[in-house]
Computed example of a mutant assay.
Amino acid sequence: MDLSTLSVEERAALKAQLDAEEKAERNRIERERETYKQLVDATVKASVTKLQSLSSEMMRIKQEVFNEFGTVIKLKNELFKVKSGRQTDTFTTSDSRMSLTLGNRVNEGWDDTVEAGIDMVKEYIKTMAKDENSANLVDTVMSLLAKDRKGALKANKVLELEKLAIKSKDERFLEGINIIKAAYRPVPTCQFIQVEMKNEQGNTVNLPLSLSAM
């Protein structure tokens, strides 16, 4: 369209038409955005309501399972003379097709006396690097004393250190390990349940018990 050929009235009419179309488009987009917001609100509310029910049911069943196995664990301790205070227990059916593990996840922690034990062990280590064999032992002990990213010792490494201390028969080494062990302060973080089952092919599969695993 050649605008130069239009009269003033025609140009005004064309501008009014374009303005009206632009306004109508803005209104359409605004209505659709409002409809979208309403859809989000409705979908979120409906989904959260369902998930609240699921969460409550999962919590109820979890507590029910722990209560039921409380009796089983107590009987296990009595019948088999095993120590109580374990962080986890695993139970498997007679046909080995189902296995359930439950317990507490634990963050490893230590009180401030652990440093005294570590220093005592390091003092002992300084006296050892005399030949290749003892140097290798020093490297092993130092690696076991290494802390994780959170600055804490690993309890399983302390057990390995204890084996070395017993083998060495050195009183200073043993005393240091005993101090470290006495400083152990595990902190339970949450209860958990894990279930494994054998499928039709005889392969072990985990039962998904979290939304992220489903």
Rank of each mutant, 00 (worst) to 15 (best):
M214C: 11
G103W: 03
I125M: 09
E25M: 14
A146C: 04
V187M: 04
M58S: 12
V48N: 07
S94C: 03
K181E: 04
R11Y: 03
E32N: 13
T101I: 06
E162I: 04
T93F: 05
S143F: 01
R86H: 13
R86K: 15
E132F: 03
V106T: 14
T204V: 09
V65M: 09
A213V: 01
A146P: 00
T189G: 12
K150M: 14
K45G: 09
T92W: 01
C190R: 03
L79V: 14
G85V: 06
A20G: 07
E30L: 15
L54S: 12
G151T: 12
E115F: 10
K50F: 03
T92E: 13
K83Y: 03
N178A: 14
L79G: 06
D41M: 13
S56P: 00
G202M: 11
R33P: 01
V44W: 00
Q63R: 08
K76R: 15
K167P: 01
D139T: 13
M142Q: 11
T127D: 05
M214I: 13
E123D: 08
S94F: 02
N77L: 10
R172P: 00
K198Y: 00
M120D: 09
F66V: 15
V158S: 08
S53V: 15
I177K: 01
T127I: 07
G103P: 06
K181I: 10
L145M: 12
E108L: 07
R105Q: 11
R185I: 06
N77C: 10
Q17Y: 02
I29C: 06
I125F: 03
S7V: 12
S7P: 05
F173Q: 08
L18Q: 06
E10C: 14
T204R: 05
K37F: 07
G117E: 09
V44N: 01
I118V: 15
Q38F: 00
F173R: 09
E10Y: 06
D2H: 07
K15T: 11
W110H: 12
L75M: 13
D139G: 06
F66I: 15
N107C: 08
L209V: 11
N27T: 15
E34L: 13
I179P: 02
I179M: 10
V141H: 02
V44L: 04
M120Q: 15
A213R: 03
I193P: 00
K74G: 13
F69S: 08
K122M: 13
A146Q: 05
A165L: 01
R185S: 05
L159Y: 09
K50A: 14
N107T: 12
V138R: 03
C190S: 07
F69Y: 08
A24D: 07
T127A: 11
Q38S: 11
V195H: 02
I61K: 11
K81W: 00
K163S: 04
G117H: 08
I180P: 04
L100K: 04
S53L: 14
Q38H: 02
G151L: 11
K50R: 10
T127N: 07
N178L: 05
A129F: 00
I166N: 11
I180G: 08
M197T: 12
Y36W: 09
S56T: 10
F91W: 01
S99T: 13
N104T: 08
N206S: 07
A20L: 05
F91D: 05
T92Q: 13
L51H: 08
A135D: 03
T49H: 05
